[in-house]
Amino acid sequence: MEQGTVKWFNAEKGFGFIERENGDDVFVHFSAIQGDGFKSLDEGQAVTFDVEEGQRGPQAANVQKA
Rank of each mutant, 00 (worst) to 15 (best):
E2N: 13
D24N: 15
V6Q: 01
E12T: 14
G35M: 15
Q55H: 14
E2R: 09
G16K: 00
A61N: 09
G16H: 00
D36C: 08
D50E: 13
N62H: 10
N10P: 02
V6N: 01
D24I: 12
E53L: 15
V51D: 02
E43N: 13
A11Q: 13
A61E: 06
S31E: 05
A32K: 09
G57P: 05
G23H: 09
H29L: 06
A11C: 06
E43G: 14
V26M: 08
G16W: 01
F17W: 09
G16Q: 00
P58T: 11
R20W: 10
R20H: 06
Q59V: 12
K65T: 14
R20Q: 07
A32G: 08
Q3V: 13
V51H: 04
D36F: 09
F30I: 07
K39A: 08
V63M: 02
V47Y: 03
D25M: 13
T48A: 07
G44Q: 05
F17N: 02
Q3W: 12
Q34R: 13
E53P: 13
F17M: 09
V26G: 01
G54A: 08
Q64P: 01
N62G: 05
L41C: 03
E53G: 08
L41A: 03
F49H: 01
F15H: 07
R20P: 04
V47L: 04
I33A: 02
G44A: 05
F38S: 07
I33Q: 02
M1P: 10
V47F: 01
G14D: 01
P58V: 09
G23P: 02
A46H: 14
K39T: 07
E12Q: 12
F15N: 02
F49N: 00
T5Q: 10
E21K: 13
V26R: 02
A66R: 12
F38R: 09
T48Y: 11
E19D: 07
D25V: 13
Q45E: 12
V28N: 00
G44H: 07
K65S: 10
A61L: 15
K7W: 03
S31L: 07
V28P: 00
F15G: 02
G37H: 06
I33P: 01
K13Y: 10
F38P: 08
G54L: 06
N10I: 06
E21H: 12
F17Q: 04
A61R: 11
A60C: 05
K7Y: 03
S31C: 05
G54T: 13
K39M: 07
W8H: 04
I18M: 02
E19K: 15
Q64F: 12
V26S: 02
A66K: 14
Q64V: 12
E21I: 13
E21L: 14
D25L: 13
I18A: 01
G54W: 05
F15V: 06
G23L: 09
G23N: 11
L41V: 05
F27I: 03
F27V: 02
N22S: 12
H29C: 05
V28R: 00
D36M: 11
V51P: 03
D36Y: 13
E2P: 05
F38W: 15
L41E: 02
F15P: 01
Q34N: 11
E21F: 11
N22Q: 12
Q64L: 10
E12R: 14
A11E: 08
K65A: 11
F9W: 14
E52R: 10
I18P: 00
D25T: 12
G23C: 06
I33C: 04
T5M: 11
E53A: 11
W8Q: 03
V47I: 06
H29Q: 03
A11L: 11
H29T: 03
F17G: 02
Q55P: 15
M1F: 11
G44I: 03
I33M: 05
V47C: 05
Q55N: 12
D36P: 12
H29V: 04
E52D: 08
V26F: 05
E52P: 03
G4Q: 01
M1K: 15
Q34C: 06
N22R: 12
K7L: 06
F38H: 09
D24H: 10
Q45G: 07
L41G: 03
L41K: 02
Q34P: 06
Q59A: 08
M1L: 13
E19V: 14
R20S: 07
Q45K: 04
V26A: 03
Q3M: 09
E52I: 15
V47Q: 00
A46R: 15
F17D: 01
L41H: 02
S40C: 07
R20A: 06
F30S: 07
G35T: 10
Q64G: 09
S31V: 05
R56E: 06
I33W: 04
P58W: 10
N10E: 04
D42Y: 15
F15M: 06
G4K: 00
M1R: 15
G57W: 05
S31F: 05
V6W: 03
E19G: 12
V26H: 01
K65P: 13
K39F: 06
G35C: 06
D36E: 13
A32N: 08
F15Q: 04
S40E: 07
K39C: 04
N22F: 13
G54M: 07
D50L: 14
V6G: 01
W8A: 03
G23Y: 08
E53R: 10
E2M: 14
A66W: 11
G35K: 07
D36R: 10
A66T: 12
D36K: 14
S31N: 08
E12M: 14
A66E: 10
K39S: 06
Q3D: 07
W8C: 05
G37K: 07
V47W: 01
G4C: 02
Q3E: 10
Q64S: 11
P58Y: 10
D25Y: 11
W8D: 01
E43M: 15
G14Y: 02
V28F: 11
